[in-house]
Design a protein around this nucleic acid. Sequence first.
RNA 1: GGCGGUGUAGCCAAGUGGUAAGGCACGGGUCUGCAAAACCCUAAUCAUCGGUUCAAAUCCGAUCACCGCCUCCA
Length: 472
Amino acid sequence: MIMKVFNTLTRKKEEFKPLVAGKVSMYVCGPTVYNYIHIGNARSVIAFDTIRRYFEYRGYDVNYVSNFTDVDDKMINEAHKEHTTVEKLAERYIKAFMEDTEALNIEPATLHPRATHEIKEIIDFVQDLIDKGFAYEVDGDVYYRARKFPNYGQLSDQNIAELEEGASEHINEEEQSKKEDPIDFALWKAQKEEDEIAWDSPWGKGRPGWHIECSVMSTKYLGDTIDIHGGGQDLEFPHHENEIAQSEAKTGRKFVNYWMHNGFVTVGKKQEKMSKSLHNFVTVHDILKQIDPQVLRFYMSSVQYRRPINYSEDGLKQAETVLKRYQNTLRNLDARLNDENETLEDNGLRDDLTQAKAEFIEAMDDDFNVQNALSIMYDLATTLNNHLQKDQVDKPALKRAKKLLIAWLEIFGVSFNEEQAENDDEIEKLIAQRDEARKNKDWAESDRLRAELQAKGIVIEDTPQGTRWHRA
RNA sequence: GGCGGUGUAGCCAAGUGGUAAGGCACGGGUCUGCAAAACCCUAAUCAUCGGUUCAAAUCCGAUCACCGCCUCCA
């Protein structure tokens, strides 16, 4: 079967053909670490983690690189405001990022490079662009000659004339006066204040511009041409456009085969983009104090990466409901696998499993259509729940189903903790007492015991196979 | 102004020419001593108008509304 991926460059779904059979090289633009990530940032991380996990599910070996932008204007300003250093600020929020994403069950990248650890390579890269005539130095700044790159604007379908007009409205005069052309962008910025973080370079003390670091790290760690480059839709222009210009001007090779952009998290009735400038964001750090990370993760994974998600309480609640159902199914599945009853062969069930797997893959292969995939997963749970109510179950088939369901849930970043088969004597004793009471039809005592257990956070389920319990 | 996206039942949402998947919520029912869990049943003609076609949510045209990028942003 063929996987199809929507390529922003061509605005079409294309057959995915990796550069090297069985391997995927992926670069995803990471955060600027001057604050906790908010849910919109998390969406991007989750979307590409899900994509990565699906590639892995399909047997690909994924080399996944995601950077930290640990120096730029915002970093400098924030550090200044907090009377700390850019380095300390970076340490703090990189740590927070790793904690938040771990809670959301994000697989760490194969590599998390940082801009400030690549300064030498960045300088060499910029120098190369100067040598090739694609860049020029002015008063310690270095700019990229955008017009010289023939395909400038190809990713975002912008034409130079329009860009120029747009740029003229937003340009700051000082920068404008230095540039040869308003559409040029900075590769290197000269140090402005004495105490401002800076490195020595052929153009004096300064620091890298924003776009260059990704070109450098992507080519350095993954090669001149990579399979997939990802990020939020807001990075299409100018960030990714500029990355293409920088990288292809330097290497003379195609930079990226498939550009993938995730949709935004929106907020409120108007469905506005969640963003720092609109002050309508919720940080992951804060929200996880109130909600189960697994629920947030599943909610964010449950919409195809290109579509917007309108963040809502309802959506979270729905995700939680569905998640609980899977948890119950798996729990009941385990109970039946462990019970004493004879097994039987249910060919209908076995066929259903085979078919579900094929359908799941078909859905996901189509540009990660998670809505359809989840619908198939949901149906599988229904099939299993029905089967589990029978007096005799097909244990080998259930084992297979369990593996399938767990593997699928993992693609969406959900892994239920193995219920430790903790032999809690006290609870077992209370349940035994309750069973005794029920046998004697002493409902008052039975209900009293159930309430007592409930108070301890224990949920009771009476089934034809006996009483089961789990923690709420 | 340029480029892009969205509009399907109360809510989320699939579906890109063949006559509207699925989920949540609501309601009804089955099972249960009662619960819990689970299962079953139940709803929309697809923003508006016009066109093409035997046939359109799906194609074409126009209109309306909302969002995003073009300036730091996942």
